[in-house]
Every structure is written in C-alpha cells, then in structure tokens.
Simulated assay, not measured.
Amino acid sequence: MSFKTLALATVLALGTVASPAVAATLRFANVTSDSGKEAGIEFKRIVEEKTNGSLEIKLFPDNQLGNDRIVTESTIFGDIDIGVSSTSPLATLFPDLYAFDAPYLFLSPADAYAKLDGAGGQAILNSLEKKGLKGLAFWENGFRNFTNSKKAVAVPADLEGMKIRTMENDVHLAAWRALGANPTPMAFSELFTALQQGTVDGQENPLGIIDGNRFQEVQSNISLTQHVYTPYVVFMNLDKYNSLSKEEQEAILEAAKMSTTFQRDRSQALEKEILSKMEGTVTITELAPDQKALWQKTVGDAKIFDLVKSKMANPEYLDEMLKN
C-alpha cells in the first residue's frame, strides 16, 4: 500500500470514529394548557437525559399539528410519534374512553388519580394498542365546572330553563337534560360569541379553559360542580415504541410517569391561581357536600352510568373504577 493510500485510509477511519451518533427525533404534538406544555418540556428533558441524547424530542405545543382527532389519527399512522388529546373527542375511535364522560365517576383529584392509575384506568390505557397506540399516561385536563350569566347555581333545580352549551355527546346531553337544563350542542369556536350575545345562558368546562378563553368576561357566575373529570391521554405510535431499544423504552415510560406527577401538581396549582384571580369579578359558588350529593343522585337516578356502559367495548373497566 502506498503512503498516500495509507494516509487516506487513516483519515477515513478517524473520520468514522469522530463522527457523532445521530439522535432519533420523536415529534411530540402537545395541547394548549400551560400545565400540559410545561409537562411536555419536562418529558423532553427526562427522555434526552436518560438516553444520553440517543433520542431527541421535538415539541409542537398549542395544537400546532392539528386538533385532538387529527393528532390521534396522525400518531396512529406514524406521522406524529407522541401525542396528547382530551379523551372526549376520541370516544368514537376508542369506545372505552366514554367512561370518562360519566358524571361523578371521580369525586376529587386524589380519587381520579387513584382510579386512573389503578386497574380500570390502566386497562383502558392498554386497550389503545388494538389500534396502534402505546398508552403512556393520563394527564389532567381537570374537572368540568358550570358557568352562567343568570344566577348562582348550587342545586339542579337552579338550572331550570337554562340553555347550556355542551359538546355533541350523547352522555353529556342526557346528563344535562336529567339535571333540568336545556343542553345545546355547539362548536367550541362559536361559544364566546354565543355567551356574549345570550344565545346560550351557560357552558361547562375545566377552569383552565374557562380562564384561557376569558369566559368570565361574559359569564357572571361560576359553580364548582366538578361534575365530570376529563383526563388528557398521552400516547405513542406503537410501532415506533416497539422499534426502540429496551433502554429507550424505559426512558419513555419513566418520563411519562415523572411528567404525569409534575403535570397534575402544576394543574392543581394553576386552578388555585385562577380561582384567586376570579374572586371579586364573578360569583363563585362552592357546593356543600349535601348539594353535591343531590347532583350525583339526580344523574344516578337517570341511569347515566348504564348509558355510558352501553357505549363501551369493555364496560367492566367502568365497573372496576366504580368499585373503589
């Protein structure tokens, strides 16, 4: 071998050794809530730290890659690697998610966490694999609360005659009818104007969404009914997850676990901040235990749980959560 050839071979060999490993990039489509966006940053930090950079998480917050359904379908197809979605818009794709439309399934944040992380909740999360998703975690979207422009509402009888915007959801519609209201399905994008013009009297959403969309500017009353707890579900393309090394999979699972604790704590702190900010600008009604029990009894007597179970592929998952 000539000196020139040997020198070239040496340079090429050194170049191969010196070139850095290329990290695999995972596209993470995240939601608009502050707690969710902050948890996404935490997820990214943990994964990249635990994999020594072999995985890079590229964050797309604020629904940049589409709404809940688009993100979910794109993750199934593999165009997105990791996604986050509220459960309600996905129930037609994953019928077991109808469980989370059941009013008063969860009675407190601690109760929700125990049931979501318990056998019933985890069975629902694992069932996503049938359609190509790896369920990673349940984050907190929060309890839905009721606002209106008419009067303070503490018991179902106070709802009589009120026109309330709801999602196009059979369970929600049946529950509000049972409570004595006049539920009106409407696109969320139309809601602020409808409240402002009096087309509807009230609406129901988690506090973060109420505050983020400034509904308190056109609604004078907030009742902390906490009637439905809506989780976010965090999921990953199953094929992509299975293609990772064991160490990378463990990093993803650990990041999901740690970011869930972070996100739930942050969500609770933000809700306290929102209520503190709203004091003095709207009338806040906190339900006494006997008043909340009346709401529970009303939807129970209307057999709403039976309606929910009729829509689920595995109604025993709901029974499991109701046991505790």
Rank of each mutant, 00 (worst) to 15 (best):
L8Q: 06
L8E: 07
A9L: 13
A9C: 07
V11R: 07
V11P: 01
L12S: 07
L12G: 06
L12C: 11
L12E: 07
L12N: 12
L12T: 08
L14E: 06
L14M: 10
L14S: 09
L14H: 00
L14D: 08
G15W: 04
T16L: 10
T16E: 14
T16I: 11
V17T: 09
V17P: 00
V17G: 04
V17E: 03
V17Y: 12
V17I: 15
A18D: 04
A18F: 07
A18M: 08
S19W: 07
V22I: 03
V22F: 05
A23F: 09
A23H: 08
A23L: 02
A23P: 06
A23C: 10
A24W: 05
L26V: 03
L26Q: 03
R27T: 14
R27A: 15
R27C: 09
R27G: 05
F28V: 13
F28K: 01
A29Y: 02
A29S: 14
N30H: 13
N30S: 14
N30G: 14
V31M: 13
V31W: 04
T32G: 08
S33I: 00
S33G: 07
S33F: 02
S35M: 12
G36L: 06
G36M: 06
G36R: 00
K37P: 00
K37Y: 05
K37H: 03
E38I: 02
G40S: 01
I41M: 06
E42P: 02
E42K: 11
E42L: 04
